[in-house]
Structures are given as C-alpha cells and as structure tokens.
Simulated scan of single mutants.
Amino acid sequence: MKSFNPPIRTLMGPGPSDVHPRILSAMARPTIGHLDPAFVGMMNETKEGLKSIFKTENELTMPVSAPGSAGMETCFANLVEPGDKVVVCINGVFGMRMQENITRFGGVAVVVEDDWGTAVSLDKVEQALKDNTDAKILAFVHAETSTGARSDAKALCKIAHDNDCITIVDAVTSLGGCELRVDEWEIDAIYSGTQKCLSAMPGISPVSFNERALTKVKNRKKP
C-alpha cells in the first residue's frame, strides 16, 4: 500500500470546508491516552469553548467523536421513546433524516412539509401542534444543509414550548455561520458538526442538552 497524498483543493461546497492550518498542525502532534490528566484538562477546556460557541451554560455540552449524523442520533436516541409523537419539519434532506431517526427509535412522526429552499412555516408548525396535543417533541433543521434555507429557530422554539414540547435542533450548518443562541432561544437539545462553518476536520459533533431535555431523559420508561 502506498502513502496517500491528497490533492490540494479549495473546498467551496456546503461541507467539508477547508481546515485551518493551525488545526492541521495540531493534528500532527503526539497522541496521548484518554485518561491522561493532560487529555482531561484539554477536554474540559474544549467543553467550555463549545459552551461559548453555542452561547449556553448547559453542563451537558460536549463533542461526540463522530460526524453530525451521530450527533443527530445522540439527540433522538436519548429523547425519543417508543410511541412518542414527534412533529418533524421537512424542507430538505436533513429533515428527512430526522424523520428516519424518529421511526427507527419507535416514535410516531408527524410531518410538517415545506418546499425545499424555503424556511419552515411557523403557521404550519403551530397548526400541527394544535392538531396533535399529545406531541412530545418538535424537531427541525435551523439551516438546511441541502439548500441553505434558514428557519426562525427562536420563533419555532417558542411555539414548541407554548405547546408543551421540547425541541431538537439541527445546527450542523448554522453553528459559527449565523446567529445561534441556545440559552436565550431556549433550545432544549442541539447538535452540530465541525466540518462546516467551524472549519475543523470532519468527524466531531458538538451537542448540548438543557435541563428540560435531561428531565425527559431521566424519566424515560424504557432505557
């Protein structure tokens, strides 16, 4: 097997993005064990940095060692129980991926569909929640990677909470690229990826859960 030397590219798609030279240099440094005190210190510092980027004080804010799809699964696996009704907004590919997660974890998906390239309709979401008063969760993509359409996360979270739902938010494309305020907008569970606006290497998914989300996790009937 020959050594692989990747060609030099300028990446201008929706991701991965070009990795900053400082990060490439850091990746060439020696490996240490995951129980090494130096690693623990670095991890704690990383978690604090993610809290700053997400604009949150959530204690459960951390990087998952996998791409954004695993961050999505982290949120849905922990928050969706069999039989839970989840209103999911689809205006692109990744809303469809959310629906797949709901189904795989035994939830019941109530789909709110909008044309690709348009923002999620607040009126449609409000009506869906009024029509499904037993819904537990509202799931939506803040900035749909497949089209670039950005939805009003702050307004969607307010509608959800007014209807006694918690929120799961996909911020894979939006984190670091547009305004995102987890605590101020009362986002309950959120996930992102490093390979988009953060200009880091692919393969890490920052996630954050607030106390409202953790209460649902802790009160699950099925582990």
Rank of each mutant, 00 (worst) to 15 (best):
V112E: 05
E57K: 15
M201K: 10
H142M: 03
G15Q: 05
M98S: 14
H20A: 13
N5F: 14
F4P: 07
S3C: 08
K85I: 09
R97H: 11
F76S: 02
A66V: 01
P16A: 05
P82I: 04
D162G: 06
T147I: 09
M72R: 12
I137W: 02
A77N: 12
A149H: 10
A153C: 13
E144T: 11
T145A: 14
K196M: 10
S208D: 02
S174L: 14
K130Y: 13
M42T: 12
I137G: 01
C89T: 07
T133K: 15
A109K: 05
E179K: 14
P6A: 10
A119Q: 13
M96Y: 08
M1C: 12
I137K: 02
V110F: 09
F54D: 04
V217Y: 11
P202T: 03
T215F: 15
S208W: 05
R97F: 10
L35N: 14
C197Q: 15
M201P: 00
K218Y: 13
D115H: 13
S192V: 01
A77P: 00
S69M: 06
D188G: 00
L35D: 15
L180Q: 04
T103L: 13
R212C: 04
M62R: 11
L198S: 03
V80G: 03
M12E: 14
A77E: 10
D134K: 08
A171M: 00
A28D: 15
K130R: 15
N78W: 09
M96I: 12
S199I: 05
D115G: 11
R104A: 07
T56L: 01
T147C: 08
D164F: 10
N210F: 06
K2T: 11
T167K: 03
I102W: 06
G83P: 09
K85L: 01
Q99H: 11
C178H: 11
G68Y: 07
G203P: 05
K196V: 08
C165Y: 07
I190C: 04
Y191D: 01
I187M: 14
L79M: 03
T61A: 04
P16E: 00
L198R: 00
S199M: 12
M72S: 03
G68I: 00
N91L: 01
L122K: 13
M62Q: 07
T56K: 04
D123W: 03
I166A: 00
L11Y: 10
P63I: 01
A109Q: 03
A128R: 09
I102H: 03
K216S: 08
A213L: 03
R150E: 15
F39V: 04
I102V: 15
G107E: 02
L138A: 02
F94V: 10
F94G: 01
A26R: 15
V80F: 07
P21Y: 10
A160G: 09
I187R: 02
L122H: 09
H20G: 00
F94E: 09
E57A: 03
E59N: 11
G13N: 11
R22F: 14
S199T: 12
V40H: 12
L35M: 11
F54R: 03
P21K: 12
C75V: 06
D84P: 11
T103D: 08
A119F: 10
